[in-house]
Design a protein around this nucleic acid. Sequence first.
DNA 1: CGTCTATTTGAGTTAGCTCAACCGTCGTGG
DNA 2: CCACGACGGTTGAGCTAACTCAAATAGACG
Lengths: 228, 228
Amino acid sequence: MYVTAATSFRDHTNPIVFPMATGVRPEASSLRRLKAGQALFCEGDSADCVYQVVEGVVRTSKMLSNGRRQILAFGYPEDIVGLSHDQCYHSDCEAVSDTKLRVLRKNASSARFNFDVEICDQLLRHAAAEVSGMQDHFLMLGRKSAMEKIASFLLVLAQRTGTHTQGEVCVPLPMTRSDIADFLGLTVETVSRTLTKLKSGHVIRLPDHHSVCIRRMAALEDLADSNE
Amino acid sequence: MYVTAATSFRDHTNPIVFPMATGVRPEASSLRRLKAGQALFCEGDSADCVYQVVEGVVRTSKMLSNGRRQILAFGYPEDIVGLSHDQCYHSDCEAVSDTKLRVLRKNASSARFNFDVEICDQLLRHAAAEVSGMQDHFLMLGRKSAMEKIASFLLVLAQRTGTHTQGEVCVPLPMTRSDIADFLGLTVETVSRTLTKLKSGHVIRLPDHHSVCIRRMAALEDLADSNE
DNA sequence: CGTCTATTTGAGTTAGCTCAACCGTCGTGG
DNA sequence: CCACGACGGTTGAGCTAACTCAAATAGACG
């Protein structure tokens, strides 16, 4: 299970540069900065840019009519956001924290990728890895309990951005409880209650609202029904 | 939202042959037949084949430790199953009905796709369309009620395999109630009850367990919170 | 015809939701 | 400097959609 299943083109098996970067001349790519909360693009906007997160975290989401929101992915540094199969974006994207992004490509309509033939195979593997990560997220959304979702989520974040310090793994939580809820298909209250329960059980510490320290990793893994 | 979001490489915007088929010499691709219920491959099996459904329907799924299952996609004719980013499959795949499949590729480890450079761009679009479809499924699993899920599901099936006859749209349901439940993240009982409720409301007819006739399409669309 | 499995229906339970109150922090303006 | 409002987070109480368990029914298939 990958936090950024939907948007990451990072390689999951062997290191490889994201192909689009290789097809773009250095001077063709620029930087863009966003303050926390600012929108990068919205569903329906003309999709003429693809971005790679350089610093900070973004979230991509979709809305349902009555205001219900589903966060599709959190985009961490190296992740790609804004890829679209046609001429408009199919999700919203906002900065979770102050963010720096590389603009990878402009004018999708006219520009073409310039692939080496030999990396096409690898590109397909990337797409498949992408899909594989999303499939794990399906399992989570469809079949896991609130506790299993939260535990899995923390484990994935720990894997990706955790730092080991004196027997604990500390994980920054740049997103709000509401973001987490909308990512996992829960409510804010349930997220909060579940974190509190983990704290009471001495599985985690919550030094402040935007960090978690995992005290008993094995216990957390058990709670996640670790099937990834 | 696509029924086969996870595995279909059919084009969603403009007609294009699946690229892998073009890279494979006719004599290199063979057929494989499965009886309903037979497994095509299992999670962890060495992934040396990619299949395209020719006839029938398959399901890809993942299991959680305690037997909970999530169906990732139903594969209908033209859909591709078995694509993997590494050397083993990451889901199970079984035939829902008697199925005929084209074996598209053998020995992934040695063989390579033979893409035209100019279709790489389109392939990437396909992958993105794929991802886009899966994202809609996220929205469904995470944020829709049982009724909305069932209604959306029926609408997608109707779109794909429905036939118009005397004011109704009739849709074959080759899969079991249990398959539907595991696709939508529900229980068999809830699926059954919801279908019964739709029948009582004269929105659908259920001539037999494996067909649905949509009598009031607009009503069904309302119930689906049609956000796709 | 008998067996097996899928489906439906009923009854009771519960995980997670809703609604509401409360707390702490932060930024703003008097 | 402090008061105030806004916002994010936590906690409590009660509700409900969907689940579990159980039993009846209906097809499917040998």
